[in-house]
């Protein structure tokens, strides 16, 4: 299982350099931790563990990169997050 996760992470890094856009979710005092975790899990297909890690990153560090890819795909992801009431932005990777 950890091998699979490592592979996925390497894949994600490769995508990041190729497509060069990211979706960031920002912390806010309204959204519930359980809700944010469940949204991450169901929308992005993260494992529960991964979804909780991203949620904690948002909560404790103020933001988390939740997806990487082309600009149009990031616009779709940001729109979905706004649909769920989460504040998300998109930007070029590395900015």
């Amino acid at each position: 299982m950890s091998t699979q996760e490592e592979l996925e992470r390497e894949g994600a890094v490769a995508l990041q350099t190729a497509d060069a856009w990211v979706t960031i979710v920002w912390n806010d005092p309204i959204n519930l931790m359980s809700y944010v975790t469940h949204v991450f899990q169901t929308y992005f297909g993260f494992t529960r563990h991964e979804a909780e890690a991203r949620m904690r990153e948002v909560h404790e560090h103020g933001r988390s990169v939740v997806s990487t890819g082309g600009r149009e795909k990031m616009e779709v992801d940001v729109q979905a997050m706004h649909g769920y009431g989460l504040w998300a932005t998109l930007q070029r990777s590395g900015e």
Binding site: E75, V78, Q79, H82, W87, A88, T89, L90, Q91
Partner: peptide, 19 residues
Amino acid sequence: LPSASREDREIADEFRRLT
């Protein structure tokens, strides 16, 4: 209906127009 960019007006306006 938040802004899709904190700094880049072009990205924010484009996103708002589309979505």
